[in-house]
């Protein structure tokens, strides 16, 4: 695991926010995931040493919280809200539209490596359902047509990069 120096700096800073180092477990996992893209195996003993706790203490946290992933994902992460208010207004259709656009199933990396699509639970924007979180950005009222438009945008960005 090779962390950027900015990440290492942020790690040292955030530990000072708490009277107990262990409290920094979640912030460190977030910082490492933002840097590496997922939580690599060697991050667990590394964090444990940094926070003076046991590796099991970090491992049990990684496996508890849905946002932490143990494997790399596609370049972009598309999270479609699955919960009731979004489902009532077509969330399942939205998810299917993304899956079709990228020829993939939820939970997998698309064949071109561009995206991973996941169903997630309530994103707290039920009034603008169905909603989708793409990386850090929330998209509202994403029906089939808007899913297609967002997919086209991602594909276009991928084409420009290549």
């Amino acid at each position: 695991m090779n962390l950027k120096s900015a990440t290492l700096q942020a790690i040292d800073e955030v530990i000072t926010h708490y009277p107990s180092k262990r409290s920094a477990t979640l912030p460190l996992l977030h910082l490492i995931q933002e840097d590496v893209g997922y939580i690599p195996e060697d991050a667990i003993p590394w964090i444990a040493a940094k926070l003076e706790i046991q590796p099991i203490n970090v491992y049990e946290v990684v496996t508890f919280y849905p946002m932490f992933r143990r494997k790399p994902i596609g370049r972009r992460h598309i999270k479609v809200c699955r919960t009731l208010s979004c489902a009532l207004l077509g969330g399942y259709k939205t998810c299917a539209a993304f899956e079709q656009e990228f020829n993939t199933h939820r939970g997998e990396v698309s064949p071109d490596g561009e995206v991973t699509i996941d169903f997630v639970e309530c994103l707290a924007s039920c009034g603008t359902a169905p909603v989708v979180l793409i990386d850090d950005d929330l998209h509202e009222k994403v029906d089939g047509a808007k899913a297609k438009q967002l997919s086209d945008q991602i594909k276009q960005e991928a084409a420009t990069r290549r």
Partner: peptide, 9 residues
């Protein structure tokens, strides 16, 4: 300080 959760209701 701001502390971020990680997706657990």
């Amino acid at each position: 300080f701001v502390h971020r959760g990680a997706g657990a209701y």
